[in-house]
C-alpha cells in the first residue's frame, strides 16, 4: 500500500546564527493509510511544527511532505487551501469552533466550502454528530457546550467532509483526563470504522497508550518509532 503521509528530510528552523532554533531537524516518517499515530514528546520538541508542516499550514526550510504521493510544497496557495479542504481534517487544542455557528453549522461549513448540496450536508452532519454522541445538541452554539462536547464537535467537523487524514494537535490538552481519554477512545473507534488516518500529538502518557503507533520526537528529531498491538 502506498503511504498516505511521507516526510523526507523535513527541517524547519527559526531564527539564525546564535538564536537558531531547529524546531524540526531532518525528519523522515512514513504513515500508512488507516494508522492511528501519536506524535509524542515534551513541550517544545516540535510536535506542532510537524503537524503544521504535514497539514500544509507552514513551509519547511528544507525537505518535503508527500501526501498520497503528492508533494504539497509544489502547490500554489489556493491549490493548497483546496487540498486542505478536501483531504485534511484539523482538530485543534483550543477546539476553535466558529463561535457564531451552531454545532451542526460548524460541521456544515466545510461541506459548504466543498459545494455539497444542502440536503446532503444536513443528513451527513446529523449522522456525524450522532456518531460523536451529540444527538439532540445539534443546534447549540459552542459556548452552550462543555469543553469535551466542543472537542467532539471539532472531531465531527474534521471528519464530516471525509478527508484522508485527520491531524489533531494536542486535542485533549484542554480536557480533564477522563474526558480526554473518552474523546480519544471515540476517535479510535471512528478510525477503525471509517478507516481514516489519524495523526495526533500529545505529551500525556495516559493518552499515548491509546495509540497504535508512537513516534517520539525530541529537539526536532525522531528518536523512537514504535508500533503497538491494539
Amino acid at each position: 500500500m502506498k503511504p498516505v503521509i511521507e516526510t523526507r528530510n523535513l527541517s524547519r528552523h527559526y531564527g539564525a546564527g546564535d538564536t537558531l532554533v531547529k524546531a524540526l531537524d531532518d525528519v523522515n516518517i512514513v504513515i500508512e493509510p488507516g494508522e492511528f499515530t501519536a506524535i509524542v514528546g515534551p513541550s517544545g520538541s516540535g510536535k506542532s511544527t510537524l503537524l503544521q508542516l504535514i497539514g500544509g499550514l507552514d513551509i519547511p526550510n528544507s525537505g518535503k511532505v508527500l501526501l498520497s504521493d503528492k508533494e504539497i510544497s509544489e502547490m500554489s496557495g489556493s491549490e493548497l487551501s483546496d487540498f486542505r479542504r478536501d483531504h485534511i481534517g484539523f482538530i485543534f487544542q483550543a477546539y476553535n469552533l466558529i463561535p457564531v455557528l451552531s454545532a451542526a453549522e460548524n460541521c456544515e461549513y466545510i461541506m459548504l466550502l466543498q459545494g455539497i448540496p444542502a440536503a446532503e450536508r444536513k443528513e451527513r452532519v446529523y449522522k456525524m454528530l450522532a456518531e460523536v454522541g451529540l444527538e439532540g445538541r445539534e443546534t447549540r452554539l459552542p459556548n452552550q457546550l462543555s469543553g469535551g462536547q466542543q472537542q467532539r464537535v471539532a472531531v465531527a467537523r474534521a471528519m464530516v467532509s471525509q478527508p484522508d487524514i485527520i491531524l489533531a494537535d494536542e486535542p485533549t490538552a484542554n480536557l480533564d483526563s477522563q474526558t480526554g481519554m473518552d474523546l480519544l477512545d471515540m476517535m479510535h473507534d471512528l478510525n477503525r470504522h471509517e478507516g481514516m488516518t489519524f495523526v495526533f500529538s500529545t505529551h500525556d502518557p495516559k493518552i499515548m497508550e491509546r495509540a497504535s503507533r508512537l513516534i517520539h520526537i525530541e529537539d526536532g528529531r525522531v528518536i523512537k518509532d514504535e508500533r503497538r498491538e491494539d
Binding site: S78, S81, G89, F90, F92, N96, I98, Y109, I110, L113
Partner: peptide, 13 residues
C-alpha cells in the same frame, strides 16, 4: 485567530 482557523480548514482567501 478565528480567520486563521477558517483558513486552516480550507476557506479560500
Amino acid at each position: 485567530g478565528e480567520f486563521g482557523v477558517l483558513k486552516a480548514i480550507g476557506t479560500s482567501p
